[in-house]
């Protein structure tokens, strides 16, 4: 039971952070290896606002999301948009994203050092639930993830920008000739994707220690969730994230905890071998 709860918590974090990865993957047609480091960046901004500036964690949460989005828009303007205009291939973009990942992560190490940190918040006792101990932070994570997913669903299905985003990820050329302002919608995709990643990063900092490489180690589970759910399918990605989170935690019942990370690798490789279009995705 404890493992199931832990799995749900980590699974919902993987789910909301991976949505952005999946959307960018489909819309811009490249894997953003820096995505995990945006997650860590958000956790550190929240840490800075909370522990150094003394802000309440809720406002630190918003500051972190805002800062991550600003950084994302900056990168779109300075790197991704010019590279698209040059018609750069996706292999070029992938290598650039690896470079960006190195820069981001090591900037965090440069400023805050490599050691682990925690938010400045009171430690509260967990409560018992069917023999498992649940920390209040874990409940907070699950509820927040649920709200975010619901908000995303409304955005994608009800608003004009949400529909444009979906149209773009379906077929970018078709979207362009039907009069959608592609660059504006791509900007929105970054905003939503990185906003969710940032929210996930701050929440992740609540249930684990904040380290510069926290996002890097989240990258593989995120990829696994994206591939499991079918690339570009936000609902598949959410389901994939929960599945990966659960299987990671449940694996600790039979394997040493160090191999949690390997579980997502094995799951991902199996999916690629057997059903590369994803389990929840259908043919793409």
């Amino acid at each position: 039971m404890q493992l199931v709860i832990n799995g749900l918590v980590i699974g919902s974090i993987i789910a909301i952070t991976a949505i952005g990865l999946s959307m960018i993957y489909k819309t811009l047609n490249f894997v953003n290896f820096a995505h995990g480091d945006f997650v860590a960046f958000a956790a550190y901004i929240a840490l800075f606002a909370n522990a150094s500036l003394g802000m309440h964690l809720a406002s630190a949460f918003l500051v972190a999301i805002l800062a991550t989005i600003v950084l994302g828009i900056f990168m779109e303007k300075v790197v991704w948009h010019p590279m698209r205009r040059k018609n750069a291939s996706r292999t070029t973009l992938i290598i650039i994203s690896i470079g960006l990942a190195l820069v981001l992560r090591n900037t965090l190490i440069f400023i805050w050092g490599g050691s682990t940190r925690n938010y400045n918040i009171p430690v509260r006792r967990g409560f018992e639930f069917f023999g498992a101990t649940i920390a209040p932070n874990q409940v907070l994570v699950i509820i927040s993830a649920f709200i975010l997913v619901f908000a995303l669903h409304c955005l994608l299905s009800r608003t004009k920008i949400g529909k444009s985003i979906r149209a773009l990820s379906d077929n970018i050329d078709l979207a362009r000739i039907s009069g959608i302002d592609v660059d504006r919608v791509i900007l929105w995709t970054w905003v939503i994707g990185l906003g969710l990643a940032a929210a996930g990063g701050v929440l992740y900092g609540l249930v684990t220690a904040i380290r510069p490489d926290m996002g890097w180690y989240l990258l593989l589970p995120m990829f696994a969730a994206v591939i499991l759910g079918g690339i570009g399918n936000p609902y598949g990605t959410i389901a994939g994230g929960i599945v990966i989170g659960l299987s990671q935690e449940l694996s600790t019942a039979i394997l040493p905890t160090e191999y949690k990370f390997a579980v997502s690798f094995v799951v991902m490789t199996l999916v690629l071998l057997l059903k590369p279009e994803g389990i929840f995705g259908g043919a793409k």
Partner: peptide
């Protein structure tokens, strides 16, 4: 020493980005 290691990696990352661009 810690910062120097990070600094070197930042240079490597920037070099990758700039060369590829």
């Amino acid at each position: 020493a810690h910062q120097m290691g990070a600094f070197r990696m930042i240079v490597i990352g920037l070099l990758l980005i700039i060369l590829m661009m």
